[in-house]
Design a protein around this nucleic acid. Structure first.
Lengths: 245, 245
DNA sequence: GTAGTTCGATTGTCCGGACATACGGATTGA
DNA sequence: TCAATCCGTATGTCCGGACAATCGAACTAC
């Protein structure tokens, strides 16, 4: 079987990226079957008119994604497992939307409040200052699924309630020119109190899935601190992990 | 401030790895302060007697770890945030041990059973075959913390009950020459049934944190399928996420 | 027949160079 | 004063080559 590969040197898209995309697509569509060898780098480079470092860069990016495995003296082969995608820093909104649900959002609170010492510490703002506080209810198919409480520093972006109901918080931040970099998450569970049970349409004492998240942008600023609770019968966290070598 | 860096060309350790380790240590110990520039690659290469590709490889590995950020036309700087480590494919045993707890394990069941259709499907074994089934109770400071139920294909490694009580499953697999590659996890919550409540010293209906995991090795084989339940007052999942660019 | 050895194949590491591209500050112009 | 432009600087991409380390299979010797 000879895989059709080609690169366009006139394109502004980097050559290694063109190649890695074609390889990824070939894996995705089964044209490269799991376990099959990829052919050695030198020969591949020659066939495409590329240098070996360029080919290696393309392959490496797919290795990092967990789609390929390299073995010295053997070759590079396609991982044969149901590897889908590594965990992304994703938003609940995007998760739901890509899963085919039609998420809707109801903004319960959207104000500016004086910070508590705890929030000031995690966001890294002055203890005497103020922060945004938003509370939202996320519904799928009209049913409440999650209750989201977030704190954001002032001046980062303007939080329009209408926009918050139309899309997710992460999209708003990206649209405001903030490039997300990393987040620290804690996932746990606890019994529902009276108020939060009411909000999610559950009974008091029912199990809730909880998530706390602190998000940083690429300059290291803390841009968001959120406390979320989910109905475990309607939502769970699902993701792929890769060992770091 | 001039950072002291040096490489040993006699060492079998790759040069780029020596450099990246030194840089990581410097960041860890605060000798490279957050936000500070790293000095341009060309000059750094010259100072160390290395080529630029080698220096780039070292820097790239730290960028992948989320410790550094590159900006074209500006330079490479240390991320200033409380980034610790990205999420690893780690075992509960290692987690607890590194957190200073003294985990102990009680093996409840360690047998070979005929597969159920569900387990056969996830492990990818024949529906008429058999698999290992182990049930363990993990305790920290003598208190029950998690109940672990795992299925493994036969012939992968021998499961000695004494070894299982002395260490974690992942360590046993690594010791048996299995190189873990990736895992698919699902984290959720539910109310405790009578039996599992009893095992964890909880009451019936108490919230439990649940985790399901399917683990693959580097050849794509499915090597483990586990269903775990945790007492949420004693355990939660905590990890760092990076955006993939 | 079995164990040890050799050898080809393939990736891993490293080098030195070249040009492209984007960011930020300084300069220039209105 | 402010906006547009220029330019230095640093990373991004790409090349061609060299040698080392490792795996697996064929081969050899016992």
């Amino acid at each position: 079987m000879q895989l059709e590969l080609s690169v366009d040197r006139g394109s502004p898209v980097p050559l290694y990226f063109q190649l890695s995309q074609q390889l990824e697509a070939a894996i995705e569509h089964g044209r490269l079957t799991p376990g099959s060898l990829l052919g050695n780098e030198i020969e591949l480079a020659g066939r495409l008119g590329l240098s070996r470092p360029t080919v290696r860069q393309a392959i490496q990016s797919l290795v990092d994604k967990g789609l390929l495995v390299r073995r010295r003296g053997v070759g590079t082969q396609v991982v044969h497992s149901q590897v889908k995608r590594p965990l992304e820093l994703s938003s609940l909104y995007d998760d739901l939307e890509s899963a085919g649900h039609r998420p809707t959002t109801k903004v319960l609170v959207n104000t500016v409040v004086p910070v508590s010492p705890e929030v000031a510490a995690t966001l890294g703002v002055d203890e005497a200052g103020e922060v945004h506080r938003i509370e939202r209810l996320r519904l799928a198919h009209g049913e409440p699924m999650a209750y989201l409480c977030n704190y954001l520093p002032l001046g980062l972006l303007d939080l329009d309630t209408r926009q918050l109901e139309a899309t997710g918080l992460y999209r708003l931040m990206r649209a405001a020119g903030i490039t997300l970099h990393s987040a620290r998450q804690t996932i746990g569970a606890r019994a529902a109190g009276a108020a939060e049970a009411e909000r999610l349409g559950e009974e008091r004492g029912a199990p809730l899935l909880t998530m706390q998240r602190v998000t940083f942008d690429d300059t290291g600023r803390t841009v968001e601190f959120g406390t979320h609770t989910y109905r475990p019968d309607r939502y769970s966290f699902e993701f792929q992990l890769l060992v770091r070598s």
